[in-house]
Each structure stands twice: as structure tokens, then as C-alpha cells.
Design a protein around this nucleic acid. Structure first.
Length: 100
DNA sequence: CTAATGACATTTG
DNA sequence: ACAAATGCCATTA
């Protein structure tokens, strides 16, 4: 069962547009915490998938990061939504990054 | 309750 | 500038 912390993360992540991405750090800040590490854990569980677009969450440096069912899957989804990815990196990261 | 873990981020060598 | 080490916070064993 999801904790309050996770719920907040999921709710916030839901606001991210289809052609944009966010980072674990930004996401954590958005909910008023610095637990970006814990955010990753929340994504790993993600009980509300695919309602919650956990694949739109990447590393702060533009790298794709990880994905429970394979990074390839994550990249594939992102590309399908208009986010180009190359060698595990998000193209135009600064532009694609969604700010709350 | 204490210890270990992780889909990260930042600071050091 | 790059790789390696250290720090972070909540969750789970």
C-alpha cells in the first residue's frame, strides 16, 4: 500500500505533459522534500502505472536513469511521446525538462 | 527498533 | 574534465 509520500509523488508526476520529462530531484523538490532517492523507490513500485507516467522521470544530468522492466522499454515509450533519446541521453534535455 | 537498499545527486581525487 | 566516493531520505527486511 502506497504511503503518503509516494502518493504525493504520483500526484505531482501526473501533471507532467506528454512531451516533457522531469527529474527525480525536481520531483522531490516539488513535493517539498529532498528525498530524490526515495522518489526512485516510489517509481520502482508504481502501483498506478501506466496512469502515472513514471517513464518521464530521468536523472538530473539528462541521462535516462533506470526502469524496472528494462531501460529500453522506457526509452521506447518516451520516443513514442515525442521525447528523443540517444545513447541513454535525452536530447534537448533543458528544453524537454518540465518545471513545476 | 536497527540495518540495508535503491529507477539519484553532488562533491572529491 | 572524468571517474570514484560519499551523502540523501523514505521504504522494507
Amino acid at each position: 500500500m502506497p504511503t503518503v509520500f509516494e502518493e504525493k509523488i504520483y500526484l505531482t508526476l501526473r501533471k507532467v505533459p506528454r512531451d516533457k520529462v522531469t527529474t527525480y530531484g525536481e520531483l522531490a523538490r516539488a513535493v517539498g522534500t529532498r528525498a530524490y532517492r526515495a522518489v526512485g523507490n516510489a517509481m520502482n513500485k508504481n502501483p498506478y502505472a501506466p496512469a502515472v507516467p513514471c517513464h518521464r522521470v530521468v536523472c538530473s544530468d539528462g541521462r535516462i536513469g533506470g526502469f524496472r522492466s528494462g531501460v529500453d522499454k522506457k526509452i521506447s515509450l518516451l520516443k513514442k511521446e515525442g521525447v528523443q533519446v540517444k545513447k541513454g541521453f535525452v536530447l534537448d534535455f533543458e528544453k524537454k525538462l518540465f518545471r513545476f
